[in-house]
């Protein structure tokens, strides 16, 4: 079985190694890709159908019934923003569908505040070989496919 994982944001897809954070760049919590977001206020959408199991203003995890969990992190070190500039549209535990908006943010504002707005999208605890068809070095719209996760 293969799980299609969609992009939470519009932007340019890059390798995780481009992320200026060791934990993500070295895929310590799982493989994936990163999206360099379009610098404009936008909705961030769920990459898959599932349940919002972890929710912070700057990051969230959606897991499906099969145990596949995707982490989306909006910018690097953005926990320090303490929620400023992030408007949540769901609550923890809520069922969401792929493409459903989770939070609204402005990558330009995050960047102006001194943070890298790049968004790692991580298949938690997956092996690197489980991911295929990574949409690297292409421009995507929100909800366009980022990769397939074979389960």
């Amino acid at each position: 079985m293969s799980l299609r994982v969609g992009s939470p944001v519009a932007g340019r897809v890059v390798a995780l190694s481009a992320v200026p954070d060791q934990v993500f760049a070295e895929a310590m919590v799982g493989p994936g890709v990163a999206v360099e977001p379009v610098r404009a206020k936008a909705d961030v959408v769920s990459p898959l159908d599932g349940t919002v199991v972890t929710l912070h203003p700057h990051a969230f995890v959606v897991a499906n019934g099969d145990g596949a969990a995707i982490l989306v992190h909006l910018g690097i070190d953005t926990v320090k923003r303490k929620g400023e500039g992030f408007e949540l549209h769901v609550v923890k535990g809520e069922q969401v569908q792929a493409g459903q908006r989770i939070v609204t943010w402005d990558p330009a504002e995050v960047e102006a505040a001194g943070f890298a707005p790049i968004c790692p999208v991580i298949a938690l605890d997956a092996s690197a070989e489980a991911l295929a068809d990574l949409a690297l070095d292409v421009d995507v719209a929100a909800n366009d496919a980022l990769f397939d996760w074979s389960r």
Binding site: V23, M28, V29, A59, V61, L71, V79
Partner: peptide, 11 residues
């Protein structure tokens, strides 16, 4: 030894 512990989603 702990001054502060702050969770940040994965760490």
């Amino acid at each position: 030894n702990i001054v502060e512990i702050e969770p940040c989603i994965t760490r």
